[in-house]
């Protein structure tokens, strides 16, 4: 796989290829979160991903949630950060906070 800037185009291409697709987007950040608002990750139904919503800290958890979103079609707003319980498992090592919106392409 090559480096990609064009995540929405990737999502459209995967959808056109008959895959189920979810998009994850950074909608808010506090402190030193590694990727700015608007950063995106696209996930298909095999769990393959392109793009990023952090420096690799939370992508695993986001892909896991994206698989659920593809199953039930319900968008989810995920929060990650040092003050979250989740932080101890999948939080941002750098200490920032980030909210990620995950939606299926239907």
């Amino acid at each position: 796989m090559t480096y990609q800037n064009d995540i929405v185009e990737q999502a459209a291409a995967l959808k056109a290829a008959g895959k189920r697709v979810a998009l994850a987007t950074v909608v808010s950040t506090w402190g030193s979160s590694p990727r700015p608002i608007g950063s995106q990750l696209v996930v298909d139904d095999t769990g393959a991903m392109q793009g990023s919503v952090s420096g690799g800290c939370i992508e695993g958890a986001v892909v896991h949630e994206a698989m659920k979103v593809m199953e039930d079609g319900e968008p989810r707003l995920l929060s990650f950060g040092v003050t979250d319980d989740q932080a101890w498992e999948v939080g941002l090592a750098c200490g920032g906070k980030v909210q990620v919106y995950v939606e299926a392409v239907e």
Binding site: V8, L23, V105, E106
Partner: peptide, 14 residues
Amino acid sequence: MKNDLLQRLVKARA
């Protein structure tokens, strides 16, 4: 996201 909305977004970007 509805696929047709995604298509319109891709078109605007193109």
